[in-house]
Design a binder for these strands. Structure first.
Lengths: 118, 118
DNA sequence: ATAAGTACCTTGCAATGCAAGGTACTATGT
DNA sequence: ACATAGTACCTTGCATTGCAAGGTACTTAT
């Protein structure tokens, strides 16, 4: 049995998921970061993500050549993988930003015409 | 081996997917429609979806109580299921619209701060 | 009667977010 | 020196879900 909130939460999650890789590329593009940085910055932007999601995703982006990383020592604790965008990553990010703006336009138009009919 | 475009297309698809249910609720909210109407209106908004995606999705939304339908005769061909939003569907749609706007704000801020650093 | 068109739906696969669990290194307290 | 806690990396297995492909049934035209 689902609670009334479940549909909504599920849908909200789906929206967030769709933009996940995009957001992560944006964050890495702002400056070198390691996994925990990314999690914190996403949380600040109200985009909750967990480790089990992030690590495989970073691996995928590395494998497809959008990211590179280097190991850095930490003041306290084990070394960290600091990620940055490759040229290909930057180009993809540019394209995704365009795509985001197009999607925005489409949906905002749908919203407008929905409101007109209600 | 992936072509350079594949990452991008995949990411774009993910973004679109995340908003799929939301868009379909918006379209149905504009007036009673049957499956083919929905496909056409999505296409007009540059949001391509196919039958094999849409039918299960409509069933899910029906099962969770966001949609209802009634059979209508067609001038030519088999009868059609015309969908409309239930009260619960309207409420969910309102919440999703708010959520969309929040997501928008978050991401646009990320984009801005990315551009500032590049 | 046969073919073409329209509309509904299902099956099986692949991608992927996520909870849970696991390894290893460092720092701290005793 | 040893145990404990903290940090950081990663993997496994499950559930969801988009989508290609295939299937049924009704209507209309030839």
């Amino acid at each position: 049995m689902k609670t009334p909130e479940t549909d909504l939460e599920n849908n909200k999650a789906q929206m967030r998921k769709g933009t996940l890789e995009f957001c992560i590329l944006l964050i890495i593009g702002r400056g070198e970061v390691y996994a925990t940085d990314i999690l914190n910055q996403l949380k600040e932007a109200d985009l909750i993500v967990v480790e089990g999601t992030l690590y495989p995703l970073l691996s995928r982006l590395k494998t497809t050549g959008l990211l590179s990383y280097k190991w850095n020592e930490s003041d306290s604790g084990p070394p960290r993988k600091y990620y940055s965008l490759t040229d290909k990553g930057k180009e993809t990010l540019k394209n995704l930003t365009d795509n985001w703006e197009n999607l925005n336009k489409s949906i905002n138009q749908l919203i407008k015409s929905y409101e007109k009919n209600n």
